[in-house]
């Protein structure tokens, strides 16, 4: 069992806690918030977690953690990373910072255990890279675009202040995973009612012609692989025109702590737990070998 700590008590933090409690290889040692008596901290305590206020310093004072999940914001992440560097903790970054090794479960999830600072790109990155990467293995992309639309209630203050990092980190990650010369990432916030599911519209322009057949099979395989990590992940359309592939995905959340439209939170919290569990599996193997 690996002992974990969660920094941040937004909806994302609460979903992480629940996933940790359901995990056979992770336990929740501490949940850290900022404001005493905040709704998130109260709920964390109700879930049976030890809680603290005072941010990263409170966490360091409490003791050692094998894994620390950072669900705060991109402004504070560098400080968290610096202060945790000497503790030996694995840092899983759910903020849109590009400092850690970028991990997307169905693409390079097996590499998570080899990194002690893991970056999860963004919700849009987690939802689009599995499909874009699969296509890029077969078609050399010259341009790749990702437009994510999240329901307003699922986008908290930290995310709203981190839109610049969201855009730049997602663009860079898409470039890294697809090799595209030019990438573009956009985030829309929808106020539509009822709140729509998280939606990602992807466009890949290939350097050479594309045929519908293999595209459909590649997209479907990537979709099926994703559904093992995120059950509410669904490709709603896939069209090919000349050298252009257009794929639309919707992600519905299937969790008890987050509303059904908050697929954006689900993709990234599922990825975080997946990465931590890879570390847990490695440490179990090491113990068995001893």
């Amino acid at each position: 069992m690996l002992t974990t700590a969660v920094l941040g008590t937004g909806l994302l933090g609460l979903d992480l806690i629940e996933r940790i409690q359901n995990s056979p290889t992770l336990t929740c040692g501490l949940v850290v918030g900022r404001t005493p008596g905040s709704r998130g901290l109260t709920q964390a305590a109700e879930l049976g977690c030890t809680t603290a206020t005072g941010g990263i310093d409170a966490l360091l004072d409490t003791g050692h953690f094998d894994v620390v999940f950072d669900a705060t914001n991109a402004f504070h992440h560098p400080e968290h990373s610096r202060k945790l560097a000497d503790t030996g903790a694995v840092l899983v970054d759910l903020t849109p910072t590009s400092a850690g090794a970028l991990i997307v479960p169905t693409v390079n999830g097996h590499q998570a255990a080899t990194h002690r600072h893991i970056g999860l790109v963004s919700c849009g990155g987690q939802a689009s890279i599995p499909i874009l990467h699969a296509l890029a293995q077969h078609y050399r992309p010259s341009y790749v675009e990702m437009v994510a639309t999240a329901a307003t209630a699922s986008v908290g203050r930290a995310s709203r202040l981190n839109l610049d990092e969201y855009v730049s980190t997602t663009q860079a990650a898409i470039g890294q995973f697809t090799g595209a010369e030019e990438t573009k990432a956009i985030l829309n916030i929808s106020a539509a009612r009822p709140a729509p599911p998280f939606r990602i519209a992807m466009t890949l322009v290939a350097a050479d012609d594309v045929k519908q057949g293999p595209v459909g099979a590649l997209v479907e395989a990537a979709e099926v692989a994703m559904q093992a990590v995120v059950p509410g992940y669904r490709v709603t359309s896939c069209t090919v025109t000349g050298t252009k592939v257009r794929v639309i995905v919707e992600v519905a959340a299937t969790r008890s702590r987050i509303p059904v439209h908050a697929g954006n939170l689900e993709v990234i919290s599922a990825a975080a737990i997946h990465a931590a569990e890879q570390h847990a599996a490695t440490s179990i193997r090491k113990e068995l070998a001893r």
Binding site: V147, T149, I186, A191, A192, R193, R199, A201, T236, I248
Partner: peptide, 17 residues
């Protein structure tokens, strides 16, 4: 009816289908 907002152009073909 769907209260689609500016920037959500990707919704148009879906709504049409």
């Amino acid at each position: 009816r769907l209260r689609v907002t500016a920037g959500q152009e990707d919704m148009i073909p879906d709504a049409a289908r």
